[in-house]
Simulated assay, not measured.
Amino acid sequence: MASEAFARWAARTEATLERLLPDPGTEPARLHAAMRHATLGGGKRMRPLLVYAAGTALGAEDALLDAPAAAVELVHAYSLVHDDLPAMDDDDLRRGQPTVHVAFDEATAILAGDALQTLAFSALAEADAAAGLRIEWVRTLAAASGVAGMCGGQALDIDATGRTQTLAQLQRMHALKTGALIRAAVRMGALAGGADAATLAHLDAYADALGLAFQVRDDILDVEASSEQLGKTAGKDAAQAKSTYPALLGLDGARARLDELAAAMRQSLAPFGERATTLAALGELAVQRKH
């Protein structure tokens, strides 16, 4: 069952992160503690699960997928630490606990994010895998993290605060800010399984639809759910006058868009048949999640 695979993969991710993260009893202890606060014991682990699901669909062993799964989660964790800073979204709550700059201080939060990002690439460079595969993993994750991916999307998000975006502008922003790392997670798993160009094209299409669906659902939850349900501050988008899918399409329109993206994911995975069971289940989770 997919739920059993997810529990196993989440446990592997947690164990790998625990191994990679520095000992909080060593100096600089405050920085080490902040890195662990940002990373361990919380979150949906969607991106690592996508690495494992894509890799195993193509025959890769779990052990080969541990490093890229942990690396993509480290980059995600770093991005959240920086995203929550006063200079960005200025948020106090993340994964049901105080954000890093609140629990520690702003300077420590900046350094923790920096250190988590570099740790991700160290994990890939030192992984027990063929050199060519490690290079492709590094290339994939770097592209998704930089100006053509997550950082570029965050810059567009900051620029758009307080003004209305078109639907095309909103979709492009989220394709970079959220979608690029989700696409990288799927691609890193697929590369471990030796995917050819045609296979990568199908999985890229699935990941693109998933990344957008994840954001549309996030926007809907920001309207409908409480801070306690989300584990982060609800209503922030409206308070900051940000364009969202419900704001541009209405709630019913946003839900209809979510249905379209769910159908696109199913179509992209159709060539894989039963091998894509866990990928399909992750797509359903993205569409139906409550937090």
Rank of each mutant, 00 (worst) to 15 (best):
F272A: 12
L170E: 00
T108D: 05
E260S: 14
R19T: 12
A263G: 14
T13C: 15
A53V: 11
R139F: 09
Q154L: 04
M1D: 13
T39Y: 02
S79D: 00
L285T: 13
A120D: 03
S79Y: 00
T244L: 06
S3A: 14
H202V: 07
P271Q: 10
A2N: 13
P68R: 02
G235F: 09
A69W: 03
G179S: 12
A103T: 04
G113P: 03
K290E: 15
L221D: 07
Y52F: 15
A256M: 00
A160H: 04
L85C: 07
A264D: 13
E18W: 00
L50H: 06
A15Y: 00
E260T: 14
T108S: 11
T166S: 15
D66N: 14
T13D: 09
V287D: 06
D23P: 08
L111K: 06
A144C: 13
D84N: 06
P246N: 07
G253D: 11
A144I: 05
A238E: 12
L261S: 06
R94E: 02
L141D: 02
L50G: 05
A143T: 14
A127Y: 03
G132V: 08
L200A: 12
A207K: 02
R45S: 06
T16P: 00
A247I: 01
E61D: 15
T99K: 01
R172G: 07
A7Q: 14
L167E: 14
D219W: 01
E73H: 10
Q240D: 14
A256Q: 10
I110T: 07
L212G: 04
T26G: 10
P246I: 04
D114H: 05
P271D: 09
A29K: 08
D208R: 13
